[in-house]
Design a protein around this nucleic acid. Sequence first.
DNA 1: TATAAATACATAAGAAAATTATGCATAATT
DNA 2: AATTATGCATAATTTTCTTATGTATTTATA
Lengths: 117, 117
Amino acid sequence: MYHCIMKKSSLYKGCLEPILLRLLKDNGRMYGYQMTQMVKEITKGELNITEGALYPLLHKMEEQGIVETETEMNGNRMRKYYSLTKAGKKQTNVAMDEMKAFMQSLEFIVNPKPVIG
Amino acid sequence: MYHCIMKKSSLYKGCLEPILLRLLKDNGRMYGYQMTQMVKEITKGELNITEGALYPLLHKMEEQGIVETETEMNGNRMRKYYSLTKAGKKQTNVAMDEMKAFMQSLEFIVNPKPVIG
DNA sequence: TATAAATACATAAGAAAATTATGCATAATT
DNA sequence: AATTATGCATAATTTTCTTATGTATTTATA
């Protein structure tokens, strides 16, 4: 019997860009497929980034100057490597602050501190 | 100078329903406006639920039998109270498990444990 | 006391951000 | 030989918000 807690994978709607920024900040230079695999691994299969969400977002981020790309050949197969630009690094810091605030807010709601008194 | 960390409030896309479920689980019976105020308070102004998101979602949840309503008059002003149905309570448990898994996944990504070795 | 802000609901139009489906191609596995 | 994994891309659709608008009562403020 296959077990998967998160059927509703849409919880991370809106968090994808900060997730990618974080990956790139930590790992320096990554290609798209690699990002999906790393997220799957880190989250033990919980978060599965779909290609239809990933690639258009990466393209948008490139247009906006947040990331820059280098295409390399791995044997006969192409890999398009993404890395943060200077502006992208700045924005990553902002995004991480936002994420932390957001996660704390979720924490407050999902695990409310009982009022003692 | 006004200070607000989370300019990008769209981070919680997809998390609104579980948030409402949690509120109703904890507080038993609430009306819409009350939910917005409570979330604002709990999150110290971080999460501001818009009415355009809230009311249609509540209506959908009622249609789906997750919540049921009672309308009461407070003076001359109407309040529509929402509470979890039996099915709603079941679903809340599922949603909370999903939320916890999701939050842990975010934690793994945003605060990765350094590999020691 | 007039005006604004807060309380309380509702809905429509539009935007944002996913999912799902499809397509192409190579490499590895069964 | 056929399937799965790797690796990219995009179009159509759906989900889920934001923004704007509308109505109405109560409270606070200038």
